[in-house]
Nucleic acid binder design. Sequence first.
DNA 1: AGTTGCGATTTTGCATGCAGAATTGATTGA
DNA 2: TCAATCAATTCTGCATGCAAAATCGCAACT
Lengths: 219, 219
Amino acid sequence: MAQSSKQTQTDKLAADIADSILSGVLAPGARLDEHGLAERYAVSRTPVREAIRSLAAMGLVELRPRRSAVVAEITPEKLETMFVAMGELEATCARLSALSMTPIERRRLQNQHERMGALVETDDVAGFVEANVTFHGLIYAGSHNTILADMVIRLRRRLDPYRRAQFRSPGRLPRSQAEHDLVVQAIVSGNAAGAHAAMLDHVSLVEDTFVSLTATRAA
Amino acid sequence: MAQSSKQTQTDKLAADIADSILSGVLAPGARLDEHGLAERYAVSRTPVREAIRSLAAMGLVELRPRRSAVVAEITPEKLETMFVAMGELEATCARLSALSMTPIERRRLQNQHERMGALVETDDVAGFVEANVTFHGLIYAGSHNTILADMVIRLRRRLDPYRRAQFRSPGRLPRSQAEHDLVVQAIVSGNAAGAHAAMLDHVSLVEDTFVSLTATRAA
DNA sequence: AGTTGCGATTTTGCATGCAGAATTGATTGA
DNA sequence: TCAATCAATTCTGCATGCAAAATCGCAACT
């Protein structure tokens, strides 16, 4: 990802702890003991403290003065809110892509979409999931707005653990592909409102899948 | 603003330095010397370092390993990007408000809008500016999505220094009010797409005002 | 039995000190 | 006169230490 020697201990710690949180190794609500973490990573408490501060500003951990920092709890309500926010941001990126993608970017998006069509044919779920990340990434980039793109990328990363089984449900691949088709058509033809609506539909359906999953999990 | 004794030195420093940056006391590109800041605030370097780290995660300062942190430069391109992002987020909040505001919230928005009409009549610019913040705040809250609301609030705060003279141009008040009227009507009637479009129009026009201002400033 | 008060321990917040990288300035050579 | 090199200084990254706040455990009381 990034060079390892150039960045500071603090940066490495922040990245590693963030991974631990996002991957679920550190469960929500878990206390981040400075001394313990320092010992675990064989550094002093100072870089640990600074790393925790970074994570707090990113919203990954909650910082209560004079009390241990804890991994931010994600309530179902908050999760719902995050999914809605991500859907809206995705739709916005699609809208902006329709308005400001270059011809080359539109071509690339079409190519990626066609490539994914082949993966649907062979029912290659793993391949599709990977290509799907690229597909959405093209749209983030196509918005030509790094602020929005960063926001949605961060949200996606944050929601990743809750999206794992997204393409498990049978028949999801061809359906996703069909939804993508509407999005691509709108973007390529410069139909901003259409791209917005199509993407919103697409991600909302994904969200529905998620909701049913959590319902299952909660039972 | 917040209680002063409960929060830590680091928090107070972060807030104060952030204010200095947002108010322009610390100009973009200015180096944040840890020792100097520590001396200025009569604390040690440790809380200063931690505060700077928080600001870095918020995007207010740029952190280059082994080199001084500097106040994040805002290039005209970046500023443009931020304004576009804020416009899209505002429009999204308006959209969600149209979908999910409670009857009480819709009523409140209408009331606020009507109150601002009176301020336009008397040409009370200061009063209108203040009421305008409340007006937009109602829409952020009305989205019932704290993630998006936080994003747009933070962006607004960040852009504030560049919006100071927003209502200086003659005739801006009645025009703003007319634009607001379209937004309010759409939200109150539950017209999501209309609210989105109306708000986008509104903030885009504000942006145009800004663009002309920077053009003036640059000359 | 449950609750409240108090002391011991843990843990955070901050100061200080040191090693190494980066910057500055001066000196030297073309 | 200007550019390049090298030494001195400055500043960052991190470790360590100390004081205060918070937490925990135990005991006494209602």
